[in-house]
Design a binder for these strands. Structure first.
Lengths: 189, 189
DNA sequence: CACATGATGTTAGTCACTAACATGACGTGC
DNA sequence: GCACGTCATGTTAGTGACTAACATCATGTG
């Protein structure tokens, strides 16, 4: 039972993705996207706050906060965030590969989109940091841990979107692995 | 002998900073900034590509690339970037404390400005990663190292701008310190 | 003083985004 | 089935960032 709202929104998003990919983000007006979806430009803005938002649609934040809270407090903040992201990635429903690729490629190739993506990233960062702060981690340390992990993750994403060949999952684990503490010689887990 | 161009640019920047701080970024039009500096809005855009650019003015990138290249190749990419940033920070001429504070506070408190700041950050990230790639580091690893360090640094900056009391330098070293490898038990330097 | 050059002003336009009000589709109570 | 309310949408008019084309004014040079 997709409601009318959901259908319109999906139509807008899909029209936007296709037009932007074909002709470039800057060469397509919101007016055109709306027309392609069969609605007026006002309807576009009722569904998306900005032109960029039709491409950047990530409602994952709450999941991530909980994932951080689920980590053992004995670990360093950085390590808690790192594991939370790895865990959350594994648990997420893998979105359609092709479409994700198109979206990330768009973002990787356009300054304005990248900027907005970073802005979203920052919201996520705040959520992660908040979860750490609740657990007693000082604010600066919490934000730094979140910032470092998301910086790494974003780098992996953009690198993939810019033309990397492997799977996205592999890149993410590899990126976050780079932030892992080196294994102790004792073999302690 | 400051050229006319330089004087106009400085006037615009200072007018922008003052007006934005007084009344908020969104409540001041470019027109008003230009008027306060005694020029027309076209002149504003000849000096700054966007409204945000009058606040975000960081020409540090080239220095950072060289700082990375100066690090011993034996270190991990992450560690090379980390040390390069610490080194570069120490070598930079400390800019006027008050003005920097005002700028960072503006950025920390405004979504659009933060987004643009991240966009700049990405350029820096690319410069750092490039320096690593030249040294033989794979692209993904290089971008991740740069992303993580700059993510941490940005978090420290924004945290400071949002109302932290200590010195900025201390926060930066503390933030980057969080990414340092743990000291080995052997006491090896 | 004629001249070239570069910074600036003027004007008019595009486009993202917003506000106010009108219309149209849909289900609910009766 | 019909009045009614609600919610998605359309229409219109506006603001403000940013651009392009052309005019002007300052500056230094011969």
């Amino acid at each position: 039972m997709t409601s009318r709202t959901e259908r319109t929104r999906a139509a807008l998003q899909s029209a936007a993705l296709q037009l932007f990919t074909e002709r470039g983000f800057d060469e397509v007006t919101v007016e055109e996207v709306a027309a392609a979806a069969g609605v007026s430009h006002m309807t576009f803005f009722r569904h998306f706050p900005t032109k960029e938002a039709a491409v950047l649609d990530d409602p994952y934040d709450p999941v991530l906060g909980d994932a951080v809270r689920a980590q053992p407090a004995a670990l360093s903040p950085l390590e808690r965030v790192r594991r939370a992201l790895l865990m959350a990635w594994g648990a997420l429903p893998e979105p359609g590969e092709g479409e994700t690729r198109a979206r990330v490629a768009l973002v990787a190739g356009h300054d304005g989109l990248r900027a907005k993506a970073w802005a979203n990233n920052q919201r996520t960062q705040d959520v992660l940091a908040e979860a750490l702060v609740e657990g007693g981690v000082p604010s600066l340390e919490a934000h730094v841990a979140a910032g470092a992990c998301l910086g790494a993750l974003m780098a992996a994403l953009l690198d993939w979107g810019a033309g990397g060949e492997g799977g996205l999952g592999d890149r993410i684990s590899s990126a976050l692995g780079q932030l892992a503490p080196p294994p102790t010689a004792e073999g302690g887990a």
